[in-house]
Simulated scan of single mutants.
Amino acid sequence: MIVGEPTRGAAHPRKGWTVHPHLEVTVPTGRAVNPVSGTNWEGTGVQPDIPCTAAESLDQAHALALARLAG
């Protein structure tokens, strides 16, 4: 179970090159693909099962764990 905020959605590994002291080029060098769906999470991120803010996520996960242990 994922608790918190959606991830940023960076599924493609990248390589960067400095072409000028004030300019860098970044190019995708690969692509992650889910073998079941044939898609990936680039640009959409991984969506949490229990959405909440990052600041609330530890307390929320802790409460869920305690509730599961209590039965």
Results as ranks from 00 to 15, higher is better:
residue 4 G to M: 03
residue 24 E to R: 13
residue 67 A to V: 03
residue 27 V to M: 10
residue 28 P to G: 05
residue 61 A to M: 06
residue 24 E to Y: 00
residue 70 A to E: 14
residue 39 T to G: 07
residue 9 G to T: 09
residue 5 E to A: 11
residue 10 A to E: 10
residue 39 T to D: 11
residue 4 G to C: 04
residue 57 S to T: 00
residue 56 E to K: 01
residue 15 K to W: 07
residue 50 I to S: 02
residue 67 A to G: 06
residue 36 V to L: 15
residue 55 A to K: 06
residue 17 W to S: 11
residue 16 G to H: 06
residue 58 L to D: 01
residue 7 T to K: 00
residue 9 G to A: 06
residue 42 E to D: 08
residue 2 I to W: 07
residue 1 M to I: 10
residue 58 L to R: 12
residue 23 L to W: 13
residue 6 P to W: 03
residue 28 P to C: 07
residue 71 G to Y: 07
residue 15 K to E: 11
residue 53 T to Q: 09
residue 37 S to H: 05
residue 50 I to H: 09
residue 38 G to F: 06
residue 62 H to R: 14
residue 71 G to T: 01
residue 14 R to E: 09
residue 31 R to I: 10
residue 56 E to L: 04
residue 41 W to Q: 06
residue 11 A to P: 00
residue 43 G to S: 08
residue 17 W to H: 12
residue 32 A to D: 10
residue 9 G to N: 07
residue 14 R to C: 05
residue 44 T to E: 14
residue 42 E to F: 02
residue 52 C to F: 00
residue 28 P to Q: 07
residue 69 L to C: 10
residue 16 G to E: 12
residue 29 T to C: 05
residue 54 A to Q: 10
residue 19 V to K: 07
residue 53 T to C: 08
residue 28 P to N: 09
residue 13 P to V: 01
residue 57 S to K: 02
residue 46 V to R: 09
residue 45 G to T: 02
residue 66 L to C: 12
residue 55 A to Q: 14
residue 44 T to P: 01
residue 48 P to I: 01
